[in-house]
Structure formats: structure tokens, C-alpha cells
Design a binder for these strands. Structure first.
Lengths: 398, 398
DNA sequence: AGAAATAAGTCCATCCGATAGACTAAATAT
DNA sequence: ATATTTAGTCTATCGGATGGACTTATTTCT
């Protein structure tokens, strides 16, 4: 269906085949050249050629001779090199800053998580703190023999023409990408910025609850509610990159007004503040973390207000998800953040509603899973973005 | 991001470049080889080579020497050949059968529309009638010097493992693709079957209201309500091809039960039957066509029931569309079928609601347009599907 | 009108990268 | 030890894009 916009010449062909071989190595490692020839449909000769390029790029290395006792000459097994290429993932959230470095094999080589209240802090101050964190982590990764090939940052906001609106941070039209490029170490050139829900969805896809799924909806619930939509192993971003604003789907036509301008938005019944308030937990001075823990305690105790709050949230989520499932046809739904914590109470009623609503239309009802990476989904996804680019275009690291 | 699953070799490269050149000819015709070289980034030599292949495939021909008074030697302008390659589009609907033949330039070379009530008719009978229609149209196209390169069929149903469930036709698990392949003329080998809303969305995309849009939601409203989702010029089908079931989005949590198993589905307030019933128009013997005309008459007259009915439908559609727009981020919404007819009454309130709901989050509120092709969207889209395949892979026509 | 300039299109030698198949290497089976 | 089997390398070849020289058709300058 899609025709490439650019011409294809011999080098393009080589790039595509390099990526193809590298991808198969990643998927089947350790793997011999002979097997790669079968997997890719390329000749043994060509595979040997491509592999030798990948070796000089230091993306691939021969792993120990893992034999499995066949007949003829044993093959030389190849695997992704655990260095020097690495991806750096960063995250800014209302309540913390986080960073992690992944090597090509997807292993976490560095991680750091700093609790700090970023809500309402000056954007420049937050960016500087993030840059400092990035420098620390990058330095430690360097000591470990790793070179960061790129950086991606997860932000809880919507991107409009290169500027970020992040209500939960108090950011309005902040040129985050530019500020970060400025503040980050030079080797992190070409910083990418993306929505937290999108990157968390990718994190779960590559390293967490979505690994088997191939196509799903990741629900990112904190103060705001967003969704990352994965279809056929790729993120669905919509026309302007603003897809997935599940928090403002209407779930209660007669309900309360929302700051977004609408009425009865999901966020108003299933967002963090709404749930805590309805659960009878005061704003107070405490962190939302400890207030959430308190809510969970009351739920365990059987407190009536807490249960009414979570039932309302469950009903809202069910309505929104029935709609999303009907529109998007995913095969799994992953609950993250707040809703992963509340999974034990939320999942059964939502599952029932999704099965009922439109259930007769569909061959299979999507499964509902809690996030597997908890607060790390977004940083892992961010770092993975860099790795996935390297895998898709090995020559890009020059 | 995406790595091709298949190896790339010299011939693959050629195929891609052929498609690239052909696509540019389609987009910029009439166009000279020199200009194509600029547009594609391929050398003059290569372009000349590729064009000569396209000429022997009879996909491209030199159009009259349209000069624009430049200096040097004038170029030989190339255009898509208006034959012999053509695509055949078919449609089965509750109330009619339709067919059309498009040549490569997208011109309608044959069309036929047969009013017939297919609801509850035996599927085999309907398929045979469709095949007869296809044969007639194909024969006439043949007299006109056209060869049908493929056939696509639009059905108002959901596809589950190759079988169609089409409640509005009374079809359950009908192996439509197989039956059609059997019944249709041999040259139509490899018949494709797709959802009516999807093909109508493509029809509007290529030849109708979506031509400028690039990314939109097409609302296909008759007895059932479906949506075709176009993003970046491509159809979004979801994990199992069942995306776009907008009719079963929940818009009235306390509302009526729907045969799908859910409660308060959009179809129950904005589907054809629901609107007619609420508008006080009896079932009777008349066709839904004439009943709809009657509703429009009463709306013009200012009848209270009719207005209440359409207001309820508008509210439901607004809720569903606010959700869909938030999730999918299209830049346009196109109303088709029933809702195109009722556009004058529906569009203003929906537009207001979509602007309110989530309006502050988005840079631009999507435009709302009525369908430009009316009942022809789906057949045109179906035929266009064939043409788009030829354009994307010129060698496929051998 | 003739010459110079300009642009389009063709021809040819070359280069890049994949291929097929012969050849070498390293293991097991007899 | 020898035959067999499988892995990996080497070499000639082929398909297809390239760059630059060449031819052709038209406008502009003199």
C-alpha cells in the first residue's frame, strides 16, 4: 500500500538487509550464519558479508560456541553485543525524575529514580535537574564501557507544534525538546521527546506485559489519564501525534465539567485526584503516593467510601474501554500507573463490562493485564526507542 | 521503525523504484522524465529505463506535448494510461447492489446501481445476483477496451476468520470471499472482501470529501453504524481487522440494551431504525429510503417528534465522536450514509460539542464534512483498492 | 538566417551488492 | 581411517543504479 517516498539504490538495499539480519539476530540469538540465511532468505554469502559489517560496527559478536550436538560442522553462534551501544531513557513526572540506560540486548545497565515534586516548578529548573541526572547516569554508563547512542524523554503532556502542554507539571507551551537539547551532554544530540503514555506502552511492549500481545492499549493513569496505542508492534500516534487522550472520553454525559472544556470526562471519575476525593481521602500535605497507599488500606478494610469510589472509577473505565476496544480492536489492554495498583479491584468489573459490550461482535475479547514494569515502563520504553532505531538502521551509528 | 520481513535484492529495488516513479506520474501528470528525475531523486537514465518498463506494461503513455514555453528542448509529457488496466468495485447493501469500474486515472468507466432488498435474502442468491451484475459491468468495460485487474467487494459486516457476520443482511458466518471467488468471472481472481465503512472511507479519501484531509474518520451510518479510520493516507484496521465499530460505543450508560450485549450503544440512538422510530415514523411497508425522505420532510416542517429524534441522535453522535477524536486524533470527520442526508441538522450541534470536549487540548478541532460521493463511496473505494495495488506494485499485473 | 545557449533524453562504461555454486573446514557416524 | 553432513568462504556473474559524454529539440542572441 505504501510506496517509499525516497529512491531505492544499492546502498538502501544494503541498509535494509543489514537491518533484517540484525533484527533476526536480536530475535533468535544466539544464532548461526547458516540459520540466518534460512530466516532471512538471503544467501549464505550475503549473510556472512552483512554479519561482518555488523561486527565491525560492534553491534554483533560471536557468543560462546553453544552446540546442540548436530551432525556436521558446528556453526559459530552470533548474538547482539552488550556494548558499546546504549540507549538513554529519561522521564519527568509530577512526582519524580527517572533515567535508565539499556544496552542493545535490552538489559538495564544503569537506572536512577529521584523522588521530587515537579508540579508547578519552573520548567527550566526541572529540565536542569533532569540534565544533571542524565549526565550522572551517562558517566556511570561510560565507566561501564557504554556509549549512549541517543536519548528519549517521556513527558506527561501533549505536543503542539514542538511545544509541550503538561497540565500536571504546570507547563504551558514549553519548548521542551529545544531546552533539553541545550541542557543535555553533547553526545545525547538529537534528543527525542514523547508522551509518557506512548513510551510506557512501548516499554511494556518490548520488556513488560505486552511482550506476547503485538497489539494493545496501554492505560497510563495518574492525575491525568492517557493511553498508548500499539498496533502490529508499532505505536499509533494519530494525525498530529495527539492520539490516545483517553482521559477526555465522555463516560458520564450528565456529569461534572472538566477543565478541558467537556463534560463527564473519564479523568473526572477515574483520575487520581477524583478517586482519592471520592474515597474520602483529604488533600492534606501528604504525597499522593502515601494517600494512594491509604486508599488501598481502606479498600482492604472494606471501607464503604473507598469502595464506592473505586466502583465509580471502574464503571467509567469500563465505558471508556468498551468504546476504545470497539474503535481500535486491540487484543490486550494493559493497565498502568494508578490503575495497575488498583488492578485487583478494577480488573474484574471492567473485564465483565468489556465482555458484555460488543462481545458478540468480536471473535475474542481482549485480555486485561496489569503493567509489569510499574513506574519504569516509560523510561524503559524511552531507552528502547533508541535501541529500536539502531536495530532498524544499523548504519545510523556510523 | 519497521523492518521489512523479506530480503531486499536487485529486483525488489527495481519494484520499489517502479512504484515510486508510477506514483509520481499519478500525482503530477502530465510530467516529463526530467521532472520525474527531480521528484524521485533517481537519475535521468534510471527514470527513462523505468518509464520504458511502465510503457510496455501499458500503465503509462505519452500525453500530447503540453508545453509551457521554457527554453531548451521540450520534454515529452507522461500520464497514466486510461487503459487497459481497470479495477472493479462491488457492493452489497441492505437496499441495493452496486458496481463500478475505474480506470487507472480514477475515472468512472462503468457504473450500475440496482435497488433490491437484500435483507434476509439467502446469501447465495444475493451473491449470484452480484456476480451477474459484475459480469455485465465487466463485459461492458471489455467493450470499452478495459481489462479488469482485480475485484474488491464492500459488505456491511464484520469479518471473523474469513467469514462474514452481517446482521443487516441476515448473514451469519457466511464465507463470502470463497462464494464470490466461485461465482465471479475468472478474470476477477483473488476477490477481496472488506467492510463497507473501510472501503467507503477509502473512496472518500481518494475521490471524495477526504481528498485534502490525509487523516480522518468516516462515519458510515445506515441501520448499523460503522467507521472507517484513515491515518496518513492508510486505513487503520486494528489487530484483527475489526477496528471502527463506532456503533457500539457507549453513549448513554443508563440507556437501552443493544443486541450486541452492551447497553446504551450509539446505534440505539443514532442508527436508522432508532431515528425513524423516535421520529414517529412507522415501520410499515415502505422502504427505509422513503421513510427517511418522510423524516426529512417533517424536519423541514418543524415537527416536534422529528426534531427530538434528531437531537437525541446528535447528542449520541457528539459523545461518540468526542471520544473517537480524543483517541484517534483525526483532522477531519466525514459523515456518510444516513448521517450525510441528515447533515444540515446534525453537523452544527456535533461541531459545537466536539469543539467543547477536549478542545483546549488540541491545536485544531477537526472539521466535519458530509460525504461527497453519497451512495457511491464504497464501490469507488473498492475499485480504488485495486488501482492502488497496481500503483504500489506495477509488476503485479505481469 | 545562423550561432549560441539551454534543457531533455539516450548511450556506455562503471560500480555496488546479491547470487549460485565450487571449495574448504570441522564435526559425527561407520 | 573414511564417508557423511553441515558451516562458512571464495570467485565469477548478474541485475540494476550511476555519472558523464553525447545527441536532439527548442529558444534567444546577433
Amino acid at each position: 500500500m505504501t510506496v517509499p517516498a525516497r529512491p531505492t539504490h544499492a546502498e538502501t538495499m544494503r541498509g535494509l538487509n543489514l537491518a533484517l539480519v540484525l533484527e533476526q539476530i536480536a530475535r533468535h540469538q544466539p544464532v548461526t550464519r547458516a540459520r540466518l540465511s534460512d530466516l532471512t532468505g538471503l544467501t549464505k554469502t550475503t549473510v556472512a558479508n552483512l554479519v561482518s559489517s555488523l561486527e565491525t560496527l560492534r553491534l554483533v559478536a560471536s557468543a560462546g560456541p553453544v552446540r546442540e550436538g548436530g551432525r556436521g560442522r558446528p556453526g559459530a553462534p552470533l548474538s547482539l553485543a552488550p556494548g558499546p551501544v546504549a540507549g538513554l531513557g529519561l522521564e519527568v513526572n509530577g512526582h519524580y525524575l527517572a533515567a535508565c540506560v539499556l544496552d542493545l540486548t535490552g538489559a538495564v545497565r544503569q537506572r536512577e529514580h529521584v523522588r521530587v515534586d515537579n508540579r508547578g516548578r519552573d520548567a527550566q529548573v526541572t529540565v536542569d535537574a533532569l540534565a544533571a541526572l542524565a549526565r550522572r547516569v551517562t558517566a556511570r554508563a561510560g565507566d561501564d564501557g557504554l556509549t549512549v547512542a541517543g536519548t528519549a524523554v517521556a513527558l506527561p503532556g501533549v505536543f503542539v507544534e514542538g511545544r509541550v502542554n503538561a497540565p500536571n507539571l504546570g507547563w504551558e507551551a514549553v519548548p521542551a525538546a529545544a531546552m533539553l537539547t541545550e541542557a543535555l551532554p553533547a553526545q545525547a544530540h538529537g534528543v527525542e521527546v514523547d508522551n509518557e503514555a506512548n513510551l510506557a506502552a512501548l516499554g511494556e511492549l518490548w520488556y513488560g506485559a505486552g511482550r506476547g500481545a503485538g497489539s494493545y492499549l496501554y492505560l497510563s493513569g495518574e492525575t491525568g489519564i492517557g493511553a498508548g496505542i500499539v498496533v502490529g508492534g508499532e505505536l499509533f500516534r494519530g494525525a498530529h501525534g495527539a492520539a490516545g487522550e483517553l482521559g477526555h472520553v465522555v463516560v458520564d454525559p450528565g456529569g461534572a465539567a472538566c477543565p478541558c472544556g467537556g463534560v463527564g470526562c473519564l479523568e473526572q471519575v477515574a483520575g487520581l485526584d477524583a478517586v482519592l476525593r471520592a474515597g474520602g481521602i483529604d488533600d492534606g500535605e501528604e504525597s499522593s503516593e502515601s494517600r494512594l497507599t491509604e486508599l488501598v488500606r481502606r479498600l482492604d478494610e472494606g471501607d464503604g467510601n473507598a469502595h464506592r469510589a473505586i466502583n465509580a472509577a471502574g464503571r467509567g473505565l469500563a465505558i471508556a474501554l468498551v468504546g476504545a476496544v470497539n474503535l481500535l480492536d486491540p487484543d490486550t489492554v494493559v493497565l498502568g500507573g494508578l490503575h495497575a495498583r488498583l488492578g485487583p479491584w478494577l480488573i474484574p468489573p471492567i473485564e465483565a463490562a468489556v465482555t458484555r459490550g460488543g462481545g458478540r461482535l468480536r471473535a475474542r475479547v481482549p485480555a486485561l493485564l496489569p503493567s509489569a514494569l510499574a513506574e519504569e515502563s516509560a523510561v524503559r520504553g524511552a531507552a528502547g526507542t533508541i535501541l529500536s532505531r539502531v536495530l532498524a538502521d544499523p548504519l545510523s551509528i556510523g
